[in-house]
Amino acid sequence: MATRDAYGEALLELGKKRKDIVVLDADLSGSTKTGKFAKAFPERFFNIGIAEQDMIGTAAGLALAGKLPFASTFAVFETGRAWEQVRQTICYSNLNVKLVATHGGISVGEDGASHQATEDIALMRVLPNMTVIVPSDGNETKQVINAISEYYGPVYVRLGREKVPMVMPDHYEFKIGKAYVFHIGKDVNIVATGIMVSKALEASKILNNEGIDVGVINMSTLKPLDTEILLKAAKASALIITAEEHSIIGGLGSAVTEFLSESHPISIHRMGLKDAFGCSGRPEELLKYYGLTPEDITKTIKIALKK
């Protein structure tokens, strides 16, 4: 299940329970899956058309009028086109607006760089009052949507286009700001987010078989960062790998590096887009091209451990 599909379902369920929920979209309700909510509750759905800045401002107004707005479009437009509206109108006033964007990362595929958000986490993370969440699978996404509806304040949630495997265990309970530890490794710990969690788990299986003790942490909340778990991982192993479908500048890799360099400096390798734009291609092909497969992770770890 794609995380965007989980969003569509969660939003519909939430809409049934809470009458204060309103949803906005910018001519992409079929792709973002807000169309499900729109069909069930047409009077609480506002298609603002191809006008993302207007959509964000309207969401702010709805929040001021006592509603709980969810505003959705592709991540590149939600965070890029409307960035200053998000900054000035939503974050500066600390409004209760939920920005849930789909088509994050290069796994968007054939549409190419113009439609692949690879700087969105950086853009949202830098904003005061903003919470940033990147779920790893469908179940986690549903929990995230419920959790943020109970939380007051601006939140950015980044979802993907492609189907992803379920990675989180059944008993898992999402809490904002709490990372999930699959295992803490003695040789290396991989801190991953979004679709890279499943890639990290695959890489850890390969290496564990070769006798390397690899830990994996799902850092689904990038802000606020779970510093407690990071510190634990950094103290357990001398090497940390961060993995994200985003630029290595400003995203998870930066967040982890910023924190650890001040509190417990160790060796960190950031995996992600190395100051580059994405391009057209099939999603799996692109992950390979940009070095984000499980094999790339194992290779990076082996090289780093030799140093």
């Binding site: 054939e110 549409d111 439609h115 391009c279 057209s280």
Partner: peptide, 13 residues
């Protein structure tokens, strides 16, 4: 068109 490495990106580059 739209293939990896092509100058014909999904949107013009």
């Amino acid at each position: 068109l739209r293939k990896l490495g092509s100058p014909l990106q999904g949107h013009p580059c």
